[in-house]
Design a protein around this nucleic acid. Structure first.
Lengths: 128, 128
DNA sequence: GGTCTCTTGATAGGGCATTATCAATGCCGG
DNA sequence: CCGGCATTGATAATGCCCTATCAAGAGACC
């Protein structure tokens, strides 16, 4: 007997998933709401939070934590990358590549497990 | 006629300043409280927040923002550096150096103004 | 020491992001 | 097309971090 509770396929969830997959950058809950409302008018923020949470638990979504900011969300399975945070429009962009020989910076005795790089500045749209 | 309001030199402020200067790593408000209470028993968290705030405004302190974390505080005037966040004890350490050719990662049209690098893992104390 | 006024500590209050509540709605299997 | 139950939207409630409040306490200049 399989666990009964089925995940229903609703208009709202489709809209949210689609908004996240089509944006090629991590979105905040607010941004997800705004984008998904185009497909699902009347969509509420609570549903966005619920869907984001279950998406992370379900493994198809991952939070992108940034200094002093609420998390953004992006699909899992992408290549290793980092992010650019535009100070003007507050959007976060995906940056390919990873330049650093970070192992060299790690002090003796410290075990390096992961790293995060965030670039700050103006995005193309905001620099005119 | 000089602006009258003087900044008094109190035991609490001395203790807080000393705690921050003697730790060779950024401290959270809670850590500042714990460390400074050794010099100033009965010190309250409100005074810590007040002193941190005025320290930042006064220019001798700067906040260290980390992904998904409340800010830590360190003295200004240090060389350019980054931080290591121990996942076990949650302490943040200062890391000298900056390896990256980050300009190369910046997409065309984007204006790079600053960057942040955070290493994650276990600190020397926590890796035994 | 006296006094003026800045500081302090305890705690209530505010701000913000997120979660819980619950009646109404809408999937979906039969 | 029905009925059961997951889901939804609105909003109240929570959690966390930090700031405001205010009576009591303590620097500093005389």
């Amino acid at each position: 007997m399989p666990a009964s509770s089925s995940e229903r396929d609703t208009q709202q969830r489709r809209a949210i998933r689609s908004a996240i997959e089509q944006a090629n950058r991590p979105l905040s809950p607010r941004e997800v709401l705004d984008h998904a409302q185009a497909q699902s008018p009347g969509l509420g923020i609570a549903t966005v939070y619920r869907t984001l949470k279950s998406g992370v638990e379900g493994g198809w979504l991952q939070p992108v934590e940034l200094p002093g900011e609420p998390p953004r969300y992006e699909p899992t399975g992408k290549r290793h990358h980092h992010h650019f945070h535009c100070r003007r429009c507050d959007r976060v962009y995906e940056i390919d590549g990873c330049p650093a020989d970070l192992r060299a910076l790690t002090p003796p005795g410290f075990a390096l497990e992961a790293h995060e790089i965030v670039l700050y500045g103006q995005c193309a749209a905001c620099s005119q």
